[in-house]
Simulated assay, not measured.
Amino acid sequence: MTARILIVAGSDSSGGAGIQADTKTVTALGGYAATAITALTAQNTLGVSGVVGVEPAFIQQQMRAVIDDIGIDVIKTGMLHNAEVIDAVSDIIDELDPSIPIVVDPVMVSQSGSSLLDPNSVQTLTRRLSLRATVMTPNIPEAEKLTGMTIRDIDGMLQAAAMLHTIGPKAVLLKGGHMQGGSSVTDILASEEGIETFESPRIETPHVHGTGCTLASAIATSLAQGMSVRASVLRARAYLYEAIRTNPGLGGGQGPLNHGHTVGSFDAP
């Protein structure tokens, strides 16, 4: 059976992040991506210039249309820009079989620094979605908003990951790409099995637009294919590393990744 991933997130007009990055990632890793779009954004590698939200009831309608017909193996959430949207999405998730994995990427700020979540909605995100999450994938700035901590080093990451794990998610992958300095990137996985540290060489490039969306969707795809959380994280990190390393160098700012690096070239007959 094809692994079916329902992605509930915003659209990125530049194609580097959001629904577009999610769909590319799921496809590149052998899954089937369906979508419920929560917002439209006008953006490119230089930043976000506009956001138009989708009505919460229509987001639910999109989700139900997919669930009732195609079915789902995993839900992955991305940009949920206010409390009403978070509640609407959570209400649908609460109707599902509790065994269906939920991957929550708590998108709050774009790679260029634009706010993508109403600050007053952080508590709703914590109260509703975190309790249902199989894996939550915050970066350091997002973890700081969720915990109220200031994270300056690996010890701070370890404390924040452990704290986030206690508020509900079965596992938390705290991403360390925003940590300044050093020749490596460290991610922390806190789960029921304990806390584990993953490290990879830092690639010096500005082209990291959509890394969070990509990693979370790669994890979701692997979970849908029956892999464990740890194995899904390892596979997702390897996929993301190669996508960054082979980025196409597009745009004048923080450019997109090479999501298609797993796909061979096609020669027309």
Results as ranks from 00 to 15, higher is better:
V104L: 13
N44A: 10
D91E: 14
V122N: 12
A220Y: 03
V48D: 09
Q254K: 15
K76L: 05
F58S: 10
S222Q: 15
V229E: 03
M227C: 07
T186A: 06
Q225L: 00
G31H: 01
A34T: 15
K175H: 10
G10R: 06
I67Q: 02
A190T: 08
S14H: 00
G113E: 04
A243Y: 02
E196R: 14
D153P: 04
L40R: 00
L146E: 07
G177F: 02
I72H: 02
S222C: 12
V208T: 15
I67K: 04
D91P: 03
R127T: 11
A236Y: 09
F266Y: 14
A231D: 10
G18C: 09
S232A: 13
S14V: 01
G252V: 03
P56Y: 05
A268F: 02
Q43K: 01
I5E: 02
L40P: 05
A34K: 01
V52E: 07
T186W: 00
L223Y: 14
N82V: 09
M79K: 14
L131Q: 11
V107Q: 09
R235W: 00
S183Q: 07
E84W: 05
Q61D: 09
H81R: 05
L158V: 14
I167Q: 12
S222Y: 05
V8Y: 13
P248L: 04
T23L: 12
A243W: 00
T166K: 09
I72C: 04
G78D: 07
G182Y: 07
G16C: 12
S90R: 06
N44S: 08
Y32R: 02
N139Q: 06
I244N: 11
V103Q: 10
V66A: 13
V52D: 06
S232W: 00
A36P: 04
A218K: 07
S49G: 11
T246Y: 08
G78P: 08
I86S: 09
A39W: 11
T211S: 15
A236C: 08
A65L: 03
E196S: 14
V54W: 09
P248H: 09
P248A: 13
